[in-house]
Amino acid sequence: MSNSMDKTPENNSPDKKRRQFIGYSAAMAGLAIAPGVTLFDLAHGRAPEEAASSKVRWGMLIDSGKCASGCNDCVSACGTENGFSGSRETDSQWIRKVEIKDLRIGQSHSLPMMCQHCEHPPCVDVCPTGASFKRADGIVLVDRHICIGCRYCMMACPYKARSFVHEELHDQNPDVPRGKGCVESCTLCVHRIDRGGQPACADACTAAGHNAILFGDLNDPNSEISKRVATLATTQVRADLGLNVGVRYQGI
């Protein structure tokens, strides 16, 4: 009986088989891309045609208690990623290790200092052409096409975060265009962020097991960085200027 039912013209029709094939294919395709979609979502990556969103504010929390004096892993990683080295007075340094010592109590700290990605960046205010700009997701950048090299942003930055390219550059990383006569600074490794990654300095610090640099979305209340900023005593460098920086420090 059942056999006779299976052999009914409706069950064996070409239409039915085609529908089944399409259904199975869709299910297989779904299974294949689902992990990718999930990972993409988890990492906050976005499609190339999608604009940066102000729903996100990228930031970093640096724990100076875990940052060892003499360790330069973040600085080396930044140099390798963005294609620079050297420590002459004319060389670019997007990130540097600053050693600070409280002379009253003798306590010392070591910490990385870079562009603080301010909410109200003085460099953006003073730039005559608008080359210094803040992206919707809080990353402060320089548009290399309209930077005229006046260096007013370097005069305005309270963190000495910007460098001027003093000479011709060679062997550049195609992801990080740089050029003689323009000003540059930490981009928060924007090319990595846009692909769903995180800054090279944070990766290097984690890979070495220091875990002193935590990167994340300050606007997402469930992110690790937001939870820690909400519960721990964190510091903004030159908080008196009211710039609401994206890079926070812990333990100083």
Binding site: V124, D125, V126, C127, P128, T129, G130, A131, I146, C147, I148, G149, C150, R151, Y152, F164, V165, K180, G181, C182, V183
Partner: peptide, 22 residues
């Protein structure tokens, strides 16, 4: 003295009115 004096035209066509330089 600009890093890019060849971009003078950029300075004359792109204005950030919040900048005292502009």
């Amino acid at each position: 003295d600009l890093g890019r004096p060849d971009r003078l035209i950029v300075a004359m066509t792109h204005f950030n009115f919040k900048s005292i330089f502009a």
